[in-house]
Write a protein that binds this DNA or RNA. Structure first.
Lengths: 226, 226
DNA sequence: ACGGGGCTTCAGCAAATTTTAAGTTTGAAG
DNA sequence: CTTCAAACTTAAAATTTGCTGAAGCCCCGT
């Protein structure tokens, strides 16, 4: 699965690149419009992530030109904060989806998954680990037949942990995936949130084994086996 | 359920495609008249959504040619704002329904549903959730034997909520489905409309349970069970 | 032109969520 | 057993989100 990222802000470009590589995508990066366009029209990518504001050639122009050349690779357009006008204009130029900066990495991942239709996600919108269940359509978390109420950050964090259950995730990985790239968060925030989650999904279920484990010095792991 | 969308404006075409796919339709898109016609005459679609103003071949011509070839797939014609002449000509050429741009997505969905209706489902154009009833033909909303008067936006919003009852719908989803694709709406507008609806369908019925629920951080949900 | 209804935005309040900060506990290494 | 960084807990501060009344605007019919 090959992905092209066209983004002039190196910080973002590289963060996205490493993040996607962790998910086993093959990622190329172009830092300006022209080289982005050249790559996109010569290499067979599965998805293109395209900043709308670029030196060399505008993102929307790239999209338009690619479509004119009959390159139909799905495009996710990155737009500056919150103008809905942007959204319309973005879709106008042939993009298939858009994402407003600053976005959380998991958000981008979700869009990429949607566009590339990975059977993984199409089949079930539900993550299951042991007796814990997370439904992404209903935003519903259930353990042992009890519905658990989570705030949206708690939900995102749990989703990330469940998607990578039985893996050790460092605080940094968590910050990079669950928080947006502008976020400037103390590692302690993660500790606090892990605490919140434990209070809600582990403590009330004393006859089930805990699911959230601390791996001192490395990070956290969600799963059954210790 | 297969749908063909023939529309040269990528913005609209893609928005419609993704929207319909979310509703579990299988969607093909043609961006010009000729390829639209080719697809329509070779593939077995259940509904064709056809722009009237197209490069390559006029929408109405496509419709006429299809009918001459004995292709009877229902056609919904998209016309530029409000010419009645257009509408007549459109229906003339064999279209089964027409829709004036810019339309709200739910509007298109309703037409598609109407045209593709199987005898089974013909039963009612009425949505029912608890003691709340919405009749789409009469534009009538009734709760507990009391008729409720709604403006057209209120009606569309309620219809969307009822169609997806017990699902959480984000403000963005609501904007994309209930407002037309040119709309430039603040999220606050949704909040205001939810307020209007609550005043009309929840507050006056204090002995029934409320139907509209806020799910902080995620969106709104209409339904009985909390 | 006028008035009314419907649609949208604005501004301010209340409440929930998110983040920080500070003190406490834990656990591995020596 | 001590020590010290890492992790945990708790509460308060900062920020965000949602609700509401009021005001402006636009369109329509008179």
């Amino acid at each position: 699965m090959r992905i092209l990222v066209v983004e002039d802000e190196h910080k973002i470009a590289n963060a996205v690149k490493t993040g996607l590589e962790q998910e086993n995508f093959v990622v190329d990066v172009a830092y300006d419009g022209q080289s982005g366009f050249d790559l996109a029209s010569s290499e067979p990518y599965d998805v293109i992530v395209l900043d709308r504001l670029l030196p060399g050639m505008e993102g929307s122009l790239i999209a338009k030109n690619l479509r004119e050349r009959k390159v139909h690779t799905p495009i996710i357009m990155l737009t500056a904060k919150g103008q809905i006008a942007d959204r319309v204009e973005g879709l106008d130029s042939g993009a298939d989806d858009y994402l407003v900066k600053p976005f959380a990495f998991e958000e981008l991942l979700a869009r990429i998954r949607a566009l590339s239709r990975r059977p993984k996600q199409t089949l079930s919108e539900t993550l299951i680990v042991g007796d814990l269940t997370l439904n992404m359509q209903l935003y519903e978390v259930i353990r042992n037949q009890t519905v658990i109420n989570l705030s949206s950050k708690e939900f995102s964090l749990l989703e990330y942990l469940m998607r990578h259950s039985n893996q050790i995730l460092s605080k940094n990985q968590i910050i990079n995936h669950v928080w947006n790239y502008e976020a400037n968060i103390l590692p302690n925030t993660i500790e606090v949130y892990i605490g919140y989650l434990r209070n809600k999904i582990d403590k009330p279920f004393k006859n089930s084994p805990s699911l959230i484990h601390t791996v001192r010095g490395f990070g956290y792991k969600l799963g059954n086996r210790e």
